[in-house]
Design a protein around this nucleic acid. Structure first.
Length: 505
DNA sequence: AGTGCAGTTGACTTT
DNA sequence: TAAAGTCAACTGCAC
C-alpha cells in the first residue's frame, strides 16, 4: 500500500508518530504542501515563511538520509493531494492532528471530505497532549501528562520511497508574493539549531529562567527560545519535556526551580491549545458574548498604527513593539503587556490587533495566540482582567533603562529618572512632539476608564451564568476525577461557584 | 520617657 | 503573569 505522509507543523523525523506509522505500511511519499493562500492571511508573515523554509530544507536532508527525500508542492491542498494520490496509487494519508487557525481548520475539513468521497483513508495522530473531540476537561491534565511520559515514537532506519518524483523547490518569499517583512534578528530554523538551542538551554541558559524570564532584557537569553521550533514541529513537545525531565533527574545545582517552572509552561502550552481545538471560533468571536460589543469594531487607525509601530509615546511599550518587529520574538510577560495595553489603554478591538501581533511572531502558533489574545483583552469572561501599567512595567522590568534606550534611541537626552515618563521632564517641552511623540493616552486615565467599563459589564446579572458555562468547558482544574474503566471518567460533584472563579482560563 | 502623629510597610481585598 | 485600594502595625521624630 502506497502511503502519503503529509507534513504540516511537524517538520522533523524524531518522535514523529505519523512517520513511524507510515514507515511500517509500505512505500512512502513524504509531502509538504506550500499553500499560497495561507501565506496571504493577515495573521501570517514572511518571517514565519522564512523560518518554515529553513525547517523544510533541514527536513529534506533528514528524510533524504532515510531514503525518501521530502516532496514539496505549491498549491491548494485538496488539488495537490488529489493529483498525487491519483498519479501514484495512494490509498492512505497519514498526518498529525493540527490545531491551527480557522483557515487550516476549513482546509482540513475540505481534505477530509475529499478523502471520504474518494475512498482514501486519512489517519490523523496526536503529537502533543491536545485531545481531539474532547468531551470535557475533567481528567485532561492527567491524560496530557500520560502522553508526555509515553516513550517517543521511534525514527525508522530507512523509508521505502515511491518511484522517483521531482522533489520540487522550496519557494522564495518573492515567488509567494509575500509582503516585505524585515526582521534582522530573526531566529533561524532547522533541526541542528533546534537541538543546539535545547541543549544550551538545559545545560546552562535555564539556570536563571524562573526569575529572568519576566524581563525582556534577561529573558532574551534565559527563556528557552524553543518556541519557533515547537511551532513548526522541528522539536516535539514530548521530546522537549522528556529532555527536561532527564535534566531534572540530574539534580543540577540551581536548576531545580527553573526546570520545573519550564515544565509547567510546556503543560500550559497544551492547555491553551486545547481551548482552540475545542472551540476554533476563539479566533474571531469573544468567548463571553457580553464582551462582544465592548470596543468599536472599526479601530482608531491612529492608535492602531502607533501601537504597531512602537510610536505611542510610552517608552517601554514602544521599545517592546520595536524589539518584536526586529527579532520576531518577545518574552511572554511582555507579550501579555503589549496585548493588554492595546486592549485596555488604547481600547482597540483584539480582532484588529491580534493579527498584527501574530504576524510579528516567528513562532506564531494559533493554539496559543488566540486564547492568550482574548485572555489579555478581558473577553473570556472567566479570568480577572489584568491591566498592566506600561510605565510601572518599564520601571520594574528595565530598571536601568538599558532595553528602553536601546530600542527607542530618541530618548537618549532624557534623564534616567524620567525615562519611562519623559513628559514629566523639564526638557520635554522642546523634545516631545519633535523627536519623540507625546503619549497618545494618559495611562492612569485610560486604565481607570477600561477598568470601570470592563467591571461594569461583569456586574450585569446575565454575566455570571455564561461565565460559569465557559469555566465548565475550558477552565483548568485540579484533578477531581477518578478513572473507572478504560478511558471513561466519572465527574465528581461540581466545585462551588466561588472555587470556580479561581480557576485559570 | 511616654505619647501623639505623620509617614511607611506589608498583608489582604477589590476592581 | 496586575494594580490600586484598604487597613493595621510599625517607625521615626518632636515634645
Amino acid at each position: 500500500m502506497n502511503v502519503l505522509l503529509w507534513f504540516k507543523r511537524d517538520l522533523r523525523i524524531h518522535d514523529h508518530p505519523a512517520l513511524a506509522l507510515a514507515a511500517g505500511l509500505g512505500p512512502v511519499l513524504p509531502l509538504y504542501i506550500v499553500e499560497p493562500d495561507y501565506w496571504q492571511l493577515p495573521d501570517t508573515a514572511a518571517r514565519q515563511w522564512a523560518f518554515t523554509a529553513e525547517s523544510l530544507a533541514s527536513l529534506r536532508v533528514d528524510l533524504g538520509a532515510l531514503g525518501a527525500p521530502l516532496i514539496i508542492r505549491t498549491g491548494d491542498a485538496v488539488e495537490t493531494i488529489a493529483r498525487l494520490t491519483r498519479d501514484h496509487q495512494i490509498s492512505r494519508i497519514i498526518s498529525h492532528e493540527e490545531t491551527g487557525n480557522l483557515w487550516t481548520y476549513a482546509r482540513d475539513r475540505r481534505v477530509g471530505a475529499w478523502a471520504r468521497a474518494h475512498g482514501v483513508q486519512w489517519t490523523e495522530l496526536p503529537q502533543s497532549g491536545v485531545i481531539r473531540r474532547l468531551a470535557h476537561r475533567d481528567g485532561w491534565a492527567k491524560a496530557r501528562d500520560t502522553f508526555t511520559e509515553t516513550p517517543q515514537a521511534a525514527t525508522p532506519l530507512a523509508l521505502h520511497p515511491l518511484t522517483s518524483l521531482e522533489p520540487g523547490p522550496i519557494p522564495t518569499a518573492r515567488a509567494l508574493r509575500l509582503r516585505p517583512d524585515p526582521c534582522p534578528h530573526r531566529q533561524t530554523g532547522g533541526r541542528t539549531l533546534a537541538e543546539a538551542t535545547l541543549q544550551s538551554f538545559l545545560q546552562s541558559r535555564a539556570a536563571p529562567y524562573r526569575t529572568a524570564m519576566s524581563s525582556p532584557l534577561t529573558g532574551e537569553r534565559a527563556c528557552s527560545r524553543l518556541s519557533p521550533f515547537l511551532a513548526t514541529g522541528t522539536l516535539s513537545v514530548r521530546e522537549v519535556a522528556q529532555a527536561t525531565a532527564q535534566r531534572q533527574s540530574e539534580r543540577a545545582y540551581g536548576f531545580g526551580a527553573s526546570l520545573s517552572s519550564f515544565q509547567s509552561r510546556l503543560a500550559w502550552r497544551d492547555h491553551f491549545t486545547q481551548k482552540l481545538e475545542d472551540q476554533p471560533s476563539i479566533e474571531t468571536r469573544c468567548l463571553h458574548p457580553a464582551t462582544e460589543g465592548l470596543r468599536p469594531r472599526t479601530p482608531d487607525q491612529t492608535r492602531l498604527h502607533a501601537w504597531q509601530l512602537g510610536e505611542t509615546g510610552l517608552p517601554f511599550l514602544d521599545a517592546c513593539m520595536r524589539y518584536l518587529a526586529a527579532t520576531g520574538w518577545l518574552n511572554f510577560r511582555m507579550r501579555a503587556m503589549v496585548m493588554a495595553t492595546a486592549s485596555y489603554h488604547l481600547w482597540l478591538d483584539w480582532r484588529a490587533t491580534g493579527p498584527l501581533l501574530a504576524q510579528r511572531f516567528t513562532d506564531y502558533d494559533p493554539g496559543i495566540h488566540w486564547p492568550q489574545v482574548q485572555m489579555q483583552s478581558g473577553t473570556t469572561g472567566i479570568n480577572t482582567p489584568r491591566i498592566y501599567n506600561p510605565i510601572k512595567q518599564g520601571q520594574d522590568q528595565d530598571p536601568a533603562g538599558t532595553f528602553t534606550r536601546r530600542w527607542v534611541p530618541e530618548l537618549a537626552p532624557v534623564p534616567d529618572q524620567y525615562l519611562q515618563e519623559p513628559w514629566k521632564w523639564d526638557g520635554a517641552r522642546h523634545f516631545l512632539g519633535n523627536r519623540y511623540p507625546h503619549p497618545i493616552i494618559d495611562v492612569a486615565t485610560a486604565a481607570r476608564m477600561a477598568r470601570e467599563t470592563i467591571w461594569g459589564i461583569r456586574r450585569a446579572p446575565a454575566f455570571q451564568p455564561a461565565a460559569n458555562a465557559i469555566v465548565q468547558k475550558h477552565a483548568s482544574r485540579k484533578d477531581n476525577t477518578r478513572p473507572t474503566s478504560g478511558r471513561r471518567f466519572v465527574r465528581d460533584p461540581l466545585p462551588t461557584p466561588s472555587a470556580q472563579t479561581s480557576f485559570d482560563f
